[in-house]
Design a binder for these strands. Structure first.
Lengths: 164, 164
DNA sequence: TGTGATTCCATTGACGCCCACGATTGCCCA
DNA sequence: TGGGCAATCGTGGGCGTCAATGGAATCACA
């Protein structure tokens, strides 16, 4: 299970703006074989996308959907590649976000790492809470829509247990 | 027989917040070949869903229904990956729930493990009793609706369950 | 030589691991 | 068939290790 980013962690930035990458995330990055952390601003969210080679790959995939000379490609490349940064990870596993990145996510002195499988996001904690509420609402809708499609047990299966 | 979570068990948390996974559940997890316990908050219940690879598989299945770059995927991944936790199991077969997980289920110093076939749930004992009562009541209604369709013994058997 | 960035070290608190105990259960044997 | 033995399981606690954090020291480049 060390090959996916899961769960969320809230850490504090110190006086120099450094923040520890959660240990479990570092393990995933190490397995991905990446020195440095790949970070860019999320397109529609006040958050940052971060990861290793796996994230790089998904960005290339997105761009590959468009002709390299199209306006769309140009726009996406600007948004993704143009705002990307490769952050150095210090010996203790900490990174320092640039002002631009912090501004985009509205980050002050704490931030939340959120696992997304192949990548993870970085949020300002309060904003993440709100976003999570929205996500749960959406999941309810999807669950209803998928109801009876043979995906047992992802959420709220209603069976009762037997008495012992 | 050892490939499904069945029955329910109520165990105590010790002073350090640790709680033993029932032995029979551990056997199922071991067969699933999983190091660590996959846990997330149930969507519409004050309970936790837990399991091994089988449970994780259902999450991947849901996400796989959406494009990895869509807003939809982002939201669902937030609710699923972002709130899941992989808990370590100590040599005695115990886990420690995070504060977030305990808060969601209202867990104090005891909790109830409830088998659900391919996964199991974790409840605060009193809430589970209430939930079970409600489930039984509704089952009576369902049985009435099924009237004589030959479904003996629904109440008291373990429902759900994916095939192995 | 000053200023910022990077690395090194030190602290503290949480967590994982080891060992121990008691109670229940199932088994064996008289 | 009953008593005792052994194994298993839940529980408790001590201790070492590691992660997160803070701050000092060192390096680089202007």
């Amino acid at each position: 299970m060390t090959d996916r980013f899961v769960s969320n962690f809230t850490n504090r930035l110190d006086a120099k703006g450094r923040v520890s990458i959660p240990s479990s995330f570092r393990a995933v990055l190490a397995k991905d074989g990446y020195e440095g952390l790949y970070v860019h601003q999320a397109l529609d969210l006040p958050a940052l996308d971060a990861g290793g080679n796996a994230l790089r790959g998904t960005i290339d995939d997105i761009l590959a959907r468009f002709s390299p000379f199209s306006d769309e490609w140009e726009l996406l490349s600007t948004a993704l590649n143009g705002t990307s940064e490769v952050l150095k990870v210090d010996p203790e596993g900490r990174i320092t976000l640039s002002e631009a990145l912090k501004a985009h996510a509205g980050i002050g002195d704490t931030l939340t790492f959120v696992g997304h499988g192949h990548k993870f996001q970085i949020w300002e904690p309060e904003r993440f809470r709100a976003h999570l509420d929205a996500a749960k609402t959406r999941l309810r809708d999807v669950k209803r829509a998928l109801g009876g499609l043979g995906t047992p047990g992802i959420v709220g299966t209603q069976a009762g247990g037997a008495g012992t």
